[in-house]
Simulated scan of single mutants.
Amino acid sequence: MPHTIKNVALAGASGNVGARVLTALLDLGFNVTVLTRTAKPFPTAARVEVVDFTSVESLSAALVGQDAVIDTTFSPEVETPLRLIDAAAEAGVYRFITSDFGLDPELPGIHDMPVFGRKKVSYEAVKKQAAQNRLTYTLVACGAFLDWSLSTGFMGLDFQGKKASIYGDGNNVVPWSTLEDVGTATANILLHPEETLNRPVYVHSVYMSQNQIFDATKAVLGSEGWEVKHNNMEPLLAQAMTDLKTGNISAATFEVQIQYCLATKALAHPWAKDDNPLLALQEWDLEKVKALIKSIAQKSN
């Protein structure tokens, strides 16, 4: 019997991904309950419920009557997603979407990276619950966040300073998705519960290499005056692993692991299976990418 999903609980709705997922869910007419630690304003169409994220009992009580739970929380600790998964199973929730939103979880080596440890634990937990017929699950593989990576410097492009930090040779073509596209795809999973049953879905806004994005940036901002640095990712990864072991941890410790993956074809490459058509996404053309770069560059001035 096909399942119809109408009532959706969303955790992490104030975050970068969660806010876009919330908008997309409301646009599609779902009944949304936002799970939050403290009372805060959300769109009036959403129901807001304050819960204790340290308590499976509190979470489970809040999830009674929900058809789906979407976890968009982001933090290093693993207890919150595990409690959400346990609570969803106890409450009889049909579909759980984990807070993955990254590279292909089926690729050997991805979830072995410490930065993806939380995602690995969540994936193993939902698979275990699904094997016991307590819930079903979906993961969203979207590559790296295109707009976020450009605006935060994670891409390695400094628009104001005209500096480019290239990871490896910069030629590895990988999936990039905007936060809005990720939100759209995630919400649309719930319109296709059978087609997305117990598997990762694979979406993207563009397939591009870092060099191709840099070329697009130069086309927008001018090709003169750029300072370019090429990074050998192997020693950078080794240093990040050492820093983890010694406790000398910074944001770069985790960023380098992701950047290493994006520079390595065995760990990041265009999807063999592409769910864009199923989940209502259209691939961007180069002009749209340039327009995004121009918009972000203007805001950084």
Rank of each mutant, 00 (worst) to 15 (best):
N188S: 12
L190K: 11
L190N: 08
E194L: 11
T196W: 05
L197I: 05
N198V: 06
N198E: 06
V203F: 02
V203P: 00
H204F: 13
H204S: 14
H204D: 06
V206N: 00
V206S: 00
M208I: 01
Q210S: 11
Q210A: 10
D215K: 12
D215H: 11
A216C: 07
K218Y: 02
K218L: 04
V220M: 03
L221Y: 11
G222W: 08
G222N: 12
S223F: 04
E224D: 15
E224F: 03
E224C: 02
W226V: 08
M233S: 10
E234M: 09
L237P: 02
L237G: 09
L237I: 09
A238Q: 14
A240Y: 05
A240R: 10
T242Y: 09
L244Q: 13
N248M: 06
N248C: 04
I249N: 09
I249D: 10
T253S: 08
F254N: 04
E255Y: 12
I258L: 14
Q259E: 07
Y260T: 14
L262G: 00
A263D: 05
A266Q: 14
L267F: 09
A268I: 01
P270F: 02
W271M: 09
K273R: 15
D274G: 02
D275C: 09
P277E: 07
P277D: 09
L278S: 08
L279W: 08
A280P: 01
L281I: 12
Q282P: 00
E283F: 01
D285F: 08
E287K: 13
K288G: 01
V289Y: 00
V289W: 00
K290N: 05
K294N: 12
S295Y: 00
S295R: 02
I296Y: 04
A297V: 09
